[in-house]
Design a protein around this nucleic acid. Sequence first.
DNA 1: CAGTGAGCGAGCTTCCGCTTGACTT
Length: 736
Amino acid sequence: MSKKKNLVIIESPAKAESLRGYLGDSYDIVASNGHVRDLPKNYLGVDESDNFKPTYTILPEKRKTVTQLKKAAKGYTRIFLAADPDREGEAICWHLSQILERKDVVFGRLRFNAITKDTVLKSLKKPSSIDMQLVDAQQARRVMDRLVGYKVSSWLQRIMGKGKSAGRVQTVALRIIQEREDIISSFVPVEYWLIDGEFTQGKSQFTASLCMIDGKSSGKPGKYPACEEDAQRMIERVKDTGINWEISRITSREKSVTPPPPFITSTLQQTASNRLSFSPSRTMSIAQQLYEGISFGSSERKGLITYMRTDSVRMSPDSLKSCREYLAEKYGSDTLSDNVRRYRSSKGSQDAHEAIRPADIRLTPEKLESILTPSQLSLYRLIWNRLAATQLADAKIMNTSVTVSGAGLEFSVTGEILLKPGFSIIDQAFINTKNRLPELNEGKVILGSYKKEQKFTSPPPRFSEARLVAEMKKVGIGRPSTYVSTIKTLRKREYVEKDGKVLIPSELGTTTVRLLIRIFPHIFKVDFTARMEELLDSVANGTETYPGALQQLSLPLESSLQMAMKNTDTFRNELQEETGEKCPQCNAPIVIRWGRYGKFKACTSFPECRYSKPLEEDNSSEYEGRTCPECGGSLLLKTGRYGRYLSCSKHPECKHTEPVPTGVSCPEEGCSGELVEKRSRKGRLFYACNRYPECKFAVWNRPIDKTCPRCGFPVLVEKNKKKGIWCPSCRKKIVT
DNA sequence: CAGTGAGCGAGCTTCCGCTTGACTT
């Protein structure tokens, strides 16, 4: 009889599946799929005159889930709510209890922060009640984000045009990108010169750099030599054949290197970006596949990794134990770290989940080779390696520095040797020892060749998506489940553009964030979130109330908003640019303004005169050396919804359009076509023959007008210069 | 791996956090 069963509601279907395995037939288990209720989408939904009372509605996309939940709840008088044991999870449980409330039903709150049979059964023995203080903390968070988001966004739209947005997280993320851009654009490179000498001692040979001149340090930015003449003068001095060069000092220091902690969302994204060139979004979707598990053979589907959205480095005691057991068995117990390495969750972490780790350490990447796709396998390997490394011994590195002296000059070089691999037996990439030095002794050396080299200091790099996520995590904005979507929003709003791997603010982004920072100085900074989190903690532990926290947090928002509202026109006018042109309809001055689709020219006597026209130079410019095949007119380069294309300047009389050419002819034998830019259905650029469909030649990367020395194919250039140049046809690296 | 695309704009869309799925565009 179904009435004898108990009902458990949990967030994720994958977790529901695991619970079924532990609890058997006496429990019905259903998934809520995250939050089911939220503030309404179309209006504020917060009554500020009534203690910030929120109005909640069922999320439209969860209507089905909710009806299913209600159906499932029928007949049960006891319902267990098992969402994550954190602020959001508590709120999910409360919302569920509100929706499913009946006179005859009792709710039990289950809390476990690792899904094992043990922890789940234990929690079932001692169900507790919903913690309303924690729920209130979540509500305060939610409502504050709504107040900031909706109020500032709607104000911003009056200045910058429809569709624009601002928020506690996204605007600060944009600010981080912008501040880096400001550093880069105001950066003044400092010239400095390196002087390298090649020395020999017996059979040993090594290169060292000039570091001291007459007791003063050199060879660094701001130090001597700072220009070519100075460098040349130094070369003259080094040249002197009478100098007796000798190794005056060799110091060796042993260094211990500890393994990195297990993965959390941000570090996984970063490592996958560096090592595998995965975007954070790709990393997350592949991790999700691993989490949901892959069915193979006749065995049932089983998750391969723990939950991938976490900010805790915690490892369950079970997993620690089995990890050490496995490693001792496979590599010998002497490879293990002396003490069990335990990881604590970082400060501020809500700690609902463990670190990201393999569900079963015994399932090595090798065993999954034939089952997983290449990308799944490589991500799994990163995760497996990272966890295994945590319980292995430290690595030992010998760091040696050598000083060569002569005539008041000192050259130096440092080298590293791996003494004991320790945890790097798992993966050499954990440690990169550079510059292995040969056997050397104190005493005489001979200077061979020497050279001077010009250097410049360089600004810090722009943020890649993964680096931005790391920064967001560091300063405490955003959560593991939202890192990717925040960046997506910034791109969707066209505040930032992605160039290769890095993010660059657009003019719109720069203008918007500067305006927002100026007008809402207290809201759009990292400290605001920190202050908010503090207050939320107070609400959670009962020293502050829900309306009290919101009162304090909305104070700076409201005062800034008041000022903003009063001066909307002033701020809008400030952003206008004079053109010197006069309106052809009413003779009033024409200015450049921001609108829904970027900048445009408009009459200053709006709304009496509605004259407007686009900035022509922005999305169309003459394309050199091509003429329209239909009317002989010139061709313009335009950017449409689907990317760049050429169109006839005689539009609308002549409707000719064509894709953008590359200037490289089609390499297909007997084909006289040219390679042109195209876009796949998914929007990705590729390059194909313009004689399609007669000729079907296509490549993903942009070809340029050079040829591969191996196969004679046009060479392509990868955006990432470090990768070098690869031939698209024979796939070999081309040395240039 | 593969259509096309063109003149808007200046009040009713916008936030952050939890989770996945797909009525076929």
